[in-house]
Amino acid sequence: MDFLNRYKFWIIGGIILVVLIIIYNTMLKKRNKVKTAFSSLDVMLKKRYDLMPNLVSMVQKYMMHESELLIKLTELREKAQNTNSIDESIELNNQIDDTIKKLNISVEGYPDLKSNQNFLHMQAVLNDVEEQISAARRTYNSHVESYNTFIGMIPMNLFALIFRFKQYKLFEIAETERESKIWM
């Protein structure tokens, strides 16, 4: 008892320190998981960036009236490729999704293009990449959700503020829309 009385502040301090270390390590682990998930997503997105010039050069011969859409797609691709911010990348990729969706709708008006075997191949490849992006996005979102919930809870939100752990943005997209997207 004498020992406990003498060192009680040290013991309490030690316990607090251990709790702090555990919280910090958990936050760090969760943040690293988010970063790893984003890097896998980034790999998939890069695959899509690589396919986009081929897509644009293939369809521009047929879709003369959609040049504005194609230019927008090229610009968005360049911006997305050069950005280092996760949030900006998410925003730009959402715009790319939107533009590709519009392009798909426009393709319906070009039967020659629709029946072109090379274009069909391109669509098939792109579709597979889209599926991979969707999988990577779901993984990223699940880790972001877990991380954001953890650092949002009391008292972790205080420690997050002290250790400068910021919340990440979800890569939000209507999954139902993605799943129902049919190219051919």
């Binding site: 998930a37 896998s40 998939m44 599926e131 991979q132 969707s134 999988a135 990577a136 779901r138 993984t139 999954e175 139902t176 799943e179």
Partner: peptide, 12 residues
């Protein structure tokens, strides 16, 4: 691999 699992086990 979690990403691969989600790729195979799509929502549909």
């Amino acid at each position: 691999d979690e990403v691969q699992a989600r790729y195979i086990l799509s929502l549909s």
